[in-house]
């Protein structure tokens, strides 16, 4: 399991109900079931990953964040998790609304477009930045809605979400030491991780 998935797991109370949107190989829901006794389920867009997950006995549904969250009843989960996917969905604001409709908490991670290396590349080369995190050409990238940490906080404020916890993390998922200052985190954090709830 990736380091940032461990950070996510640490945010989740044992024995809670969890929906992992974009569950991939199912590592997080498997961990939450085995080690935190959670009722953890997944949604995954890649059918190969869905088949592999179900073949490992994990409850995973083929679907995606944009089209399938609306089918869950209000308050069906304690936590709804969206890992490194918000920038790739069609309607990020609607996805967040759905997450906080069906879940009491939302845990969202995304790559931070405000990182200094991206800013510097755009400034110095005048071309779309290419970094280990943002490594796909603009015409091929699935990341159609990049945002910075400050952009995301502004959206949370506009939508009335309470940020219970936030972390800036580096690409391998380790916690970065910018916990005090959002401006520094927005400059030096490669990934961001938020724990939100309804106001």
């Amino acid at each position: 399991m990736r380091l940032d998935q461990r950070l996510i797991a640490d945010m989740i109370r044992p024995r809670s109900r969890v929906l992992d949107v974009g569950s991939g190989d199912g590592a997080l829901i498997d961990h939450l079931y085995r080690n935190r006794q959670c009722d953890a389920r997944g949604i995954e867009i890649d059918m190969g990953e869905v088949t592999r997950s179900v073949a490992h006995g994990l409850p995973v549904m083929h679907g995606d964040a944009d089209h399938d969250l609306s089918y869950y009843p209000d308050d069906s989960f304690d936590y709804v998790v969206l890992q490194r996917t918000l920038q790739a969905v069609e309607r990020p604001r609607e996805v967040l609304r759905q997450m906080l409709r069906i879940g009491r908490h939302a845990i969202v991670s995304f790559p931070n477009f405000g990182h200094w290396r991206l800013r510097l590349q755009l400034l110095t080369t005048g071309r779309m930045p290419m970094t280990p995190v943002w490594h796909t050409q603009w015409y091929e990238t699935p990341n159609i809605h990049p945002c910075t940490i400050r952009d995301f906080l502004a959206l949370c404020e506009a939508e009335g979400y309470v940020v219970d916890q936030w972390l800036a993390i580096d690409e391998v998922g380790d916690r970065a030491p910018w916990r005090r200052s959002i401006r520094l985190a927005n400059l030096f954090g490669e990934q961001a991780l938020f724990l939100l709830r309804r106001a």
Binding site: D39, R41, M47, V50, T51, S53, V54, L58, P59, V60, M61, H62, G63, D68, Y71, Y72, P73, S76
Partner: peptide
């Protein structure tokens, strides 16, 4: 069917085999 089960809050997996 799978979405209806989700609406009902049931623990459901859904796979389409190629």
């Amino acid at each position: 069917m799978a979405r209806a089960l989700n609406r009902a809050g049931v623990n459901v997996s859904f796979v389409e085999i190629e």
